[in-house]
Simulated assay, not measured.
Amino acid sequence: MRPSAIDPNMPVSEIMRIWPATIGVMIRNGMLCIGCPIGMFHTVADACAAHVVDEARFSAELLAAMRAEPD
């Protein structure tokens, strides 16, 4: 599944489950969402605010990783 945009309501744990390549994006940006119990509640915006990460840049990186996943 190749999304055209980030779903603003999708929790980061769901994004990582569906598109495993996004885990690398999380790690590169110093986000400790992998395995975090809050990940099932945090959206991308929530996680970016909590980790002081630029949401637009991070979302673009996530989307690129999501689109690169094999079908």
Rank of each mutant, 00 (worst) to 15 (best):
E14V: 14
P37C: 08
I27P: 02
C36Y: 04
V44H: 00
H42W: 15
A64I: 07
A50P: 00
S4K: 08
R2T: 14
A65L: 06
L32N: 12
G35L: 05
F41D: 05
G35R: 05
V52A: 14
A56R: 14
F58R: 06
A56Y: 04
S59T: 10
V53H: 01
A21M: 09
P3S: 06
G24Y: 00
A21Q: 11
H42P: 00
V25Q: 09
C33V: 07
A47Y: 02
V12M: 13
A60W: 05
G35Y: 06
A56L: 11
M40S: 14
R67G: 02
S13F: 00
I18L: 14
M40H: 12
S59V: 04
P37A: 09
P8A: 07
I38N: 09
I34N: 12
D7K: 03
P70S: 13
T22K: 03
C36I: 07
I23C: 06
E14N: 10
E55G: 07
A56M: 10
H51V: 03
A50R: 08
I18G: 01
A64C: 06
M10V: 12
A68P: 02
G30K: 07
A56K: 15
A56F: 08
M26E: 07
N29T: 06
M16D: 02
H51Y: 13
I34P: 00
A5M: 09
L63K: 10
P11D: 10
S59Q: 11
M66V: 04
I6S: 05
W19H: 10
D54M: 06
C36W: 03
W19Q: 01
M66S: 07
E61S: 12
V44S: 02
A68R: 12
P3A: 10
G24W: 03
I18M: 12
P70R: 14
S59M: 02
R57M: 11
L62F: 12
P8S: 11
D71F: 10
M31A: 08
P20Y: 05
I38E: 10
L63G: 07
P8D: 15
M10G: 00
M26K: 01
S59C: 13
I23A: 15
E14H: 14
A45G: 09
A21T: 06
G30W: 04
P70W: 02
A64T: 15
V12S: 10
A60G: 04
